[in-house]
Computed example of a mutant assay.
Amino acid sequence: MRLDKYLKITRLIKRRTVANEACDAGKISVNGKIARASYDVKVGDVIEINMGVKPLKAEVLSISEYATKENAADNYRIIP
């Protein structure tokens, strides 16, 4: 699944266009490397989002095409 779509489905970023723009601006990195929106997300990847004041790190636990509001957070684990 594309990185921008994964960020939207898991609700780490609210809109896919915002996720796409953040990738283009170099604010999203996967496994320590700046990633493009077209990056293919895999289980075990560590996504770091550097938007706003506090950076957010999340490990990909699963990938699903659809996620409801209640189970969206089951697809990743926040790394402190």
Rank of each mutant, 00 (worst) to 15 (best):
I13R: 02
R77A: 15
R16Y: 05
K42Q: 14
N20I: 02
L56A: 05
R16E: 06
R2N: 13
L56G: 03
L7H: 11
N50P: 00
N20M: 03
R11F: 07
R16P: 06
K27C: 03
G32L: 07
L61P: 09
N20D: 06
V46W: 01
E70P: 03
K33S: 12
N31M: 11
V60F: 07
V60Q: 13
I13N: 01
K8P: 10
K14P: 01
A37S: 15
I9W: 09
A72W: 04
G26T: 04
A67V: 00
D24M: 06
D4G: 14
T68C: 10
I28F: 00
D24K: 08
I34V: 13
I28L: 02
Y39P: 00
I28P: 00
R77L: 14
A73H: 15
N50C: 13
E48L: 07
A35R: 01
V18H: 01
V18G: 00
E59Q: 14
I78A: 08
T10K: 06
I47S: 05
K8A: 12
A22L: 08
K5M: 12
G26L: 04
V30R: 04
N31A: 12
G52Y: 07
I78F: 08
G32T: 04
L12Y: 06
I79M: 07
T68R: 15
V60H: 10
E48A: 14
I47V: 12
E21F: 00
S29H: 08
N71C: 10
I78Q: 12
Y76V: 10
K57W: 05
A35E: 02
R15K: 07
D40H: 09
S64H: 14
M51P: 01
C23H: 04
R36V: 04
K14A: 03
Y66I: 12
A73E: 15
V18E: 01
K5R: 15
K42D: 06
E65H: 10
G52N: 06
E48S: 13
A19L: 07
K42V: 09
I47K: 09
A22N: 06
D45N: 13
Y76M: 15
P55C: 11
Y76S: 14
E21Y: 00
A67R: 05
L61F: 07
K69S: 13
M51T: 05
E48K: 14
N20P: 00
V60N: 10
S38R: 10
D24E: 11
N71Q: 11
I49L: 09
M1Q: 10
A58V: 11
K42A: 13
N71D: 15
D45L: 05
V46I: 15
A25G: 03
D74R: 12
L56N: 02
V43P: 02
I78C: 04
E48W: 05
D4W: 15
V53S: 05
K69C: 10
A35L: 06
V46A: 04
T68F: 12
V18R: 00
A72H: 08
I63M: 05
M51S: 06
D74H: 13
N20S: 08
M51F: 04
P55W: 10
V18W: 00
K8H: 11
K33Y: 12
A22E: 02
V41Q: 11
Y39N: 02
K57S: 06
I49G: 03
E21H: 00
P55F: 13
S64M: 09
R2H: 09
T10F: 08
T10W: 07
A25W: 02
A19D: 03
K33Q: 12
A67L: 07
R15E: 03
R11W: 10
I34S: 05
A35T: 01
I79V: 15
D40W: 02
